[in-house]
Amino acid sequence: MTIDTINSQIRSVTGLELCNISCEKAYRRLFSGLSVSLSAGQCLRILGSNGSGKTSLLKIIAGLSRDFEGVIHWQGDERSQAFINKSELLYLGHLTGVKASLTPVENLSWWVSLCLPTYHLQHKDICNALSQLGLGCELNTPCHLLSAGQQRRVALARLILSQQKVWILDEPFTAIDPLGISQVEHYIKQHQSDGGMAIITSHQIIHHVELLHLDLADYQQGAK
């Protein structure tokens, strides 16, 4: 067999694929045999009751937790385990990564230089993103003086600046008012139409976005 024919037999993965993922935490099996695949322009909503392992699954997908069994593929051949490239991933955990003693602008510019250093985003882009989320008057107020919802908005402003292909959002709507929620839904929809992928956990119903659903209850022990 020539190398070409071998290569043609290896299926290449176009998006994100999880195969047979199992995770155990504190001697309890959270889920097992979980398989799902996601390609460009798709958005996955993960459902599950409290403690069912939604955040653990997101951490696994983000590559933050290696404590699982199964295989993850990301854009390439299916032979080897590959996590999502860090430069293509935006992760917004339920801890937002907003530092209370820094101002919204300082928080975001730190994040930009960590995660989007090559895009040469300017100070005004950051201010712009914050203003879009209604923080125009609080640009230089230390975050500990902001409300919980406003702090969450500082974190969500990353969605506006984002150039990443995959968004992983853990409960993005916590403490956000209805107007803010529809705004974030709009950003997700736009991201989706730009060919991006999103993985979201939320107890809220997400409107206006085409969603795939994954219910962790189906993968718990004893589930059929």
Binding site: L89, Y91, G97, V98, K99, A100, C115, P117
Partner: peptide, 11 residues
């Protein structure tokens, strides 16, 4: 506050 996760996920 989760900054550490962001740091570890930095490209």
């Amino acid at each position: 506050d989760g900054s550490l996760e962001q740091l570890l996920l930095s490209s």
